[in-house]
Design a protein around this nucleic acid. Structure first.
Length: 580
RNA sequence: GGUUCGGUAGCUCAGCUGGUUAGAGCGCACGACUCAUAAUCGUGAGGUCGGGAGUUCAAGUCUCCCCCGAACCA
């Protein structure tokens, strides 16, 4: 933190794989909470950089492109745009949404490989691998299929058997054949690959993990589990054409690796840095990324927070740190991790083929992004897996958004329009009701901020809702519609305070439901510069509830949230699955 | 199989280092109000905190065993 109190916060969310639109569970487990957090910290006045990207390399992308009958590059170009659009549709406020297939990532990945090798952490090793004579190439794990040596399933993939679930080595398959051409004309040949000697880094990584005492329990225990089992050396190259080429330090193709690329898990996390460099170029400051990633060039005061699903924890706490720390260069390491469990569909898995679950693009065809954002944050899979159900979704939206927030804004703005000419009333003095709401907010607003800082998203949503609910309670106490009959001035205080509360509710709603929040703040006419959640603003509650200029004109917004009807739930359950 | 995390009101969950009558939201019942998207506000019913044993002056909160669920195992 600088002496102005302005923090520099780097936020990344796990890179979604290029292969297809993500479902709500993927959204809820990394991109969405990262966005909510980034938005909050920006509103606090901090310097936030939120980076994400598509993870494009690897066998699944090649296979999908092949199935679609297009080149991998074309396939990724198309899929990247689709995912980018889906992200925009959900109002994900990336500063940059990059691509791991970009040149920045390639250069950085090659750089890391070179320095790691210079530090003795990468070595070439010979290994046996399946070679397809008809295809004229070595076959990476998933390109080989055959009979499982354990269960005799006939279509086991080289890396894993879909029948018995065991992990396999492709050379152990019985009657192997090429998944590319179907040719059985294959043989086991010796080839060479680069291995990352993670075992050498065991103690260093353990010391780093153990020093990171404030990591959440989920992240820490997964990391320590891996370390307890011992880090294994892993091959970081594959026989593919789609990926980061393996080069010599001078940039030329490495001898014997002309037809190989780095394995996707090695280059993907480097894209956090690569995407930041892409952003840097985009804003016309090609060296700016270094201030976020090089501790010797200004990144020493950066707070770096990673958001990810639990499946990614090992890569972020062990694998990628091996790369970063092993380079012995002053790169920024993660400070805080937030790991999520899964969102399930009625307790089961999302499945495209079985019509179970809603994917990001489909969701936006049904309802505005805010509806999904609210539900997924209020029910974030933090402590354990969380089940999405239409019934829970309906209850949450109708109660929290439509009844508590939407109706509050509606009732106070409409009443103001009908009785006070749509202008913030000037008359009247605060009394007990105003004192009550001030006390209420003086305890709740700091709690809200604390929950954000702790990244407790369910609590963030619950506290946000409680603040909105306090507005309704206030109106019951102030009852301007009753006072209006005896004293218009007494009623005026309640309306004025109510309008200011509506504005405040819009402000605190911004990180979670940005679009609806904007509608509220626009309707009340809050200038952009007054929409912050900084410490000074939230600290002066008495000022907050009388902040609008007296006489200022407001206009009731349209209905903010339409309720979800029972027949819609029935229809969507039919279309997307439901009721287990 | 190993490891980890869970099992608290009908539902979804909070309950930090053990300490007054175990909490919230939804749902439900009743009442109030009428500005509002039949919204809101209040009150209440409802739990032997998965089961068993133990430690302690005191356990949802610690220990052991068992049952059930979920996840991870490169």
């Amino acid at each position: 933190m600088t002496d102005t109190g302005k923090r520099r916060i780097l936020v990344t969310s796990a890179l979604p794989y290029i292969n297809g639109v993500k479902h709500l569970g993927n959204l809820a487990g990394s991109m969405l909470p990262a966005d909510v957090y980034a938005r909050f910290q920006r509103l606090r006045g901090h310097d936030v950089l939120y980076i994400c990207a598509t993870d494009e390399h690897g066998t699944p992308a090649e296979l999908a492109a092949q199935a679609a009958g297009v080149s991998v590059r074309a396939y990724c170009d198309e899929q990247h745009e689709i995912q980018k659009k889906a992200g925009e549709g959900f109002a994900l406020s990336y500063d940059h949404f990059g691509r791991s297939s970009g040149e920045e990532n390639a250069r950085l990945t090659q750089h890391f490989a070179h320095v790691l090798e210079a530090n003795g952490l990468i070595e070439e090793r010979a290994m046996k691998q399946v070679y397809s004579i008809d295809d004229g190439r070595f076959l990476p794990d998933r390109y080989v299929e055959g009979t499982c040596p354990h269960c005799e399933f006939e279509k086991a993939r080289g890396d894993q058997c879909d029948n018995c679930g065991r992990l396999l080595d492709p050379v152990d398959l019985i009657d192997p054949y090429s998944a590319v051409s179907g040719s059985k004309n294959v043989e086991v040949r010796e080839t060479r690959h680069l291995f990352l000697r993670q075992s050498q880094m065991q103690d260093t990584i353990r010391a780093w993990v153990e020093a990171s005492e404030d990591w959440p329990q989920l992240a820490r225990s997964i990391a320590l589990k891996w370390l307890d089992e011992g880090l294994r050396d892993r091959a970081i190259t594959r026989d593919l054409s789609w990926g980061v080429p393996v080069t010599s330090p001078d940039g030329s193709p490495r001898e014997g690796f002309e037809n190989k690329v780095f394995y996707v898990w090695f280059d993907a996390p480097v894209e956090y840095i690569g995407a930041t460099e892409e952003w840097s170029k985009k804003i016309g400051k090609p060296d700016e990324w270094r201030k976020w990633w090089r501790t010797d060039e200004g990144a020493d005061d950066v707070e770096y927070i990673q958001f990810m699903g639990k499946d990614n924890v090992a890569f972020h706490t062990v694998s990628f740190p091996v790369t970063i720390i092993g380079s012995k260069e002053p790169w920024k390491l993660v400070d805080q991790l937030k790991a999520f469990n899964w969102v399930t569909w009625y307790g089961g898995k999302f499945s495209t083929s079985n019509k179970r679950g809603v994917f990001m693009d489909q969701a936006l065809d049904l309802l505005p992004a805010d509806y999904w954002r609210w539900y997924l944050i209020a029910n974030a899979p933090e402590g354990s897996d969380a089940a999405f159900t239409w019934e829970g979704f309906q209850a949450s939206i109708n109660s929290d958004l439509a009844n508590v927030l939407g109706n509050f804004v509606n009732r106070i703005t409409k009443y103001c329009a009908s009785k006070f000419d749509g202008k913030v009333p000037d008359a009247g003095q605060p009394d007990d009701a105003e004192a009550w709401i001030i006390t209420e907010l003086e305890t709740r607003l700091p709690q809200l901020v604390q929950h954000y800082e702790n990244m407790d998203f369910r609590k963030v949503a619950a506290e946000t809702r409680a603040i909105w609910a306090a507005g309704n309670e206030y109106l019951t106490k102030a009852e301007p519609w009753v006072k209006y009959k005896s004293s218009v001035d007494d009623a005026a205080v309640g309306v004025r305070t109510g309008l200011n509360l509506a504005a405040l509710f819009g402000i605190v709603a911004q990180p979670i439901i940005p679009e609806a929040a904007k509608m509220i703040l626009d309707a009340i006419g809050i200038p952009e510069k007054n929409r912050t959640m900084n410490a000074e603003g939230l600290g002066d509650v008495a000022g907050l509830i009388d902040a609008l200029p007296h006489g200022h004109a407001i206009s009731p917004p349209d209905v903010l949230f339409r309720k979800i009807e029972d027949d819609q739930v029935a229809e969507w359950s039919e279309a997307f699955g439901g009721e287990g």
